[in-house]
């Protein structure tokens, strides 16, 4: 076995990248796991709203000339889109088999992709980093790290804390958890469970779209960008344990680390190159290992 170590400065930069990627994944996956855990709906189209977010950021930033305003308006629009979708389609799925959910939400992927093509076209776009975040922090004489990527991590951490607070410490969070555990009982205590579900779904969509918005300046904006994200997000949800927001955070960070370092480390086993040649498989290998160890995911509820 031969192992090529990274120089420390490269390691530091890759570590920051890994954390930033993981935190961004968490934002998308948290909405997915909430909707799945609370309403029992598998939303394959969740990643499409990551893409919609990126396109909204691009077109609104061009329109307003300011990414900050674009994000505020974009999040408001995403909440409305999410609420409308829940009201029109998703609420019809709660009592149905997963097959119907997969069919409907797969259909939504195709529709969203087509609408995106009609409204915004099929070109790849770049979104400029806002001026006040455009700087870089020098690490060594030759290497530096962009402030914008640090800002992404900071925003994601703040949102993760805010989500944990709302779910664990507020009355709204208690209501959401109560509704997830026993819908009928929650209703009989006067809770409008349909409204709670509408809000949870809309917030989940808005989180995915927000992730797409803040990622746009570093990843660029392109057709089908949600499809890459959704697959990894399902891996996050499965590793973390379905329905667990805490699990989604841990799993997303793990995947960020494995995926990023899988691509930069060099590893040879018995003369056969393993990394980075097989880096594309690394997150799935991680998932397989976790599932062999804990079939219900890291923070999932054990089946009774």
């Amino acid at each position: 076995m031969r192992w090529l170590a990274l120089p420390f400065d490269t390691f530091a930069i890759q570590l920051l990248n890994a954390v930033q990627y993981g935190l961004l994944l968490f934002l998308v996956a948290s909405g997915l796991t909430l909707v799945f855990g609370i309403m029992g709906v598998i939303n394959l189209a969740h990643g499409s709203f990551y893409m919609i977010g990126a396109y909204l950021a691009w077109s609104l930033a061009e329109h307003f000339g300011n990414l900050g305003i674009a994000i505020v308006v974009g999040v408001a629009l995403s909440l409305l889109i999410g609420a409308a979708l829940e009201w029109l389609f998703i609420r019809r799925l709660y009592d149905r088999d997963h097959l119907y959910q997969v069919l409907l939400t797969y259909g939504l992927i195709l529709i969203v992709e087509e609408l995106r093509s009609i409204v915004w076209g099929d070109d790849v776009h770049a979104v400029p980093v806002p001026d006040w975040l455009a700087a870089s922090i020098p690490l060594t004489d030759t290497l530096s790290y962009p402030v914008y990527r640090l800002w992404i991590s900071g925003v994601c951490i703040a949102l993760a804390i805010a989500m944990a607070f709302v779910i664990q410490r507020t009355r709204i969070g208690m209501t959401i958890r109560a509704g997830a555990s026993n819908r009928e009982m929650a209703q009989s205590l006067g809770i409008d469970i349909r409204f709670v579900q509408l809000v949870v779904f809309a917030v989940g969509i808005a989180l995915a779209a927000f992730a797409g918005m803040i990622a746009a300046p570093v990843s660029s904006v392109f057709p089908g960008m949600g499809n890459q994200v959704i697959i990894i997000c399902f891996v996050v949800v499965v590793i973390g344990g379905i329905g667990s927001v805490k699990g989604a955070l841990v799993a997303a960070l793990l995947i960020g680390l494995v995926d990023t370092f899988g691509k930069v480390l060099e590893l040879e086993v018995a003369g056969i190159p393993v990394l980075p040649e097989l880096a594309g498989m690394s997150v799935y290998v991680l998932m397989a290992i976790v599932l062999l160890w804990r079939p219900e995911g890291l923070f999932g509820k054990r089946a009774p």
Binding site: M174, R177, S181, N182, E184, M185, A186
Partner: peptide
């Protein structure tokens, strides 16, 4: 009947 407490709260 069966009480219906929320076990996760």
């Amino acid at each position: 009947e069966g009480r219906g407490i929320f076990p996760n709260l």
